[in-house]
């Protein structure tokens, strides 16, 4: 690129300052976001004595036994099982329901379809915590209080607006000719969905599914409100009891917390491109 013509001394100074400032900014955020995480992971390998006396030293011996304690004391296998059941079922139910609805709205024309889409999508603007009482009553009324099924239904419903938004966006971009050809070949309405549009929307489904899965895995408030017994306790709710379970063994508790973070981080490591594209799918309009 051509260098500028009237480049004064102050100009060069500002460019240089901006360059230093840029790296300072990047590093500052790196430290502030990740120092606590790194400290947590390192602390989880310490003995309790080391943890209480030397906040920053590396552990002399890396205590993998903290992780063994964590697994056995907190009943992690059961909590993991419940969370996997809830997150996986919700992801399947929600994406299926949302993609059927999005298909009808995106690939057909009927009166008020845009209004319908906007009303559903506007659901994301509602603060879900404001609806605690009705959700509580609803789940009780259906007799699914304190069941994983109750959580699955609730989570599937809560995520409808975001899923419909994402999946509708993807479905809208599929060329119509494909479906028209299929109709001529004798495809019915539901076959157009199951054989043409649904498979072609896979990237959108993966994006929406990833969002829903991470939401379910991390959800705490409604897990707390809608379950009470250990049988239907999910991981996030379980974490709340760590402090009473690990009274004397603080570093094993930290190990347990690290373990609970791993699944969503793994999902993110493998699917971060899909997540980022999902976040930005509407941003071009901004």
């Amino acid at each position: 690129m051509k260098k500028s013509i009237n480049r004064s001394g102050s100009h060069i100074a500002i460019q240089a300052a901006a360059k230093t400032g840029k790296w300072f900014y990047i590093l500052f955020f790196l430290v502030i976001t990740f120092l606590p995480l790194v400290w947590l992971v390192i602390s989880s390998f310490k003995t309790n004595f080391e943890f209480e006396t030397q906040a920053f030293a590396l552990p002399k011996v890396w205590m993998w036994s903290n992780y063994k304690n964590a697994m056995s004391m907190a009943g992690l296998p059961r909590l993991f099982m419940n969370s996997i059941i809830v997150a996986a079922s919700t992801t399947i139910v929600n994406t299926l329901v949302a993609s059927m609805g999005a298909f009808a709205i995106a690939r057909e024309t009927f009166r008020f379809q845009n209004l319908l889409l906007n009303i559903i999508v506007a659901g994301v603007l509602i603060p879900i915590i404001a609806l605690m009482v009705p959700f509580f009553k609803l789940v009780n009324g259906f007799g699914i209080y304190d069941t994983l099924f109750g959580l699955i239904v609730t989570y599937s419903a809560i995520n409808i607006p975001i899923s419909v938004f994402l999946i509708h966006g993807f479905m809208g971009s599929i060329p119509r000719e494909l479906e028209e050809a299929a109709v001529i070949d004798g495809c019915s309405f539901s076959q157009r969905f199951s054989k043409i549009v649904f498979p072609l929307t896979k990237p959108g489904l993966v994006t929406a599914g990833t969002f829903v899965f991470i939401f379910c895995w991390n959800e705490f408030i409604y897990a707390m409100l809608l379950t009470s017994s250990e049988v239907s306790r999910t991981l996030q709710l379980g974490i709340r009891f760590f402090r009473s379970q690990f009274v004397v063994d603080y570093t094993s508790m930290l190990a347990a917390i690290v373990i609970t973070m791993i699944p969503t981080i793994l999902v993110y490591v493998f699917l971060h491109d899909r997540i980022i594209s999902g976040l930005t799918s509407g941003a071009v309009k901004g």
Partner: peptide, 14 residues
């Protein structure tokens, strides 16, 4: 860009 978003996938509880 990828790692600054990472904390957003960790649960509020953890």
């Amino acid at each position: 860009r990828t790692i600054y978003f990472l904390p957003n996938v960790i649960s509020q509880v953890a």
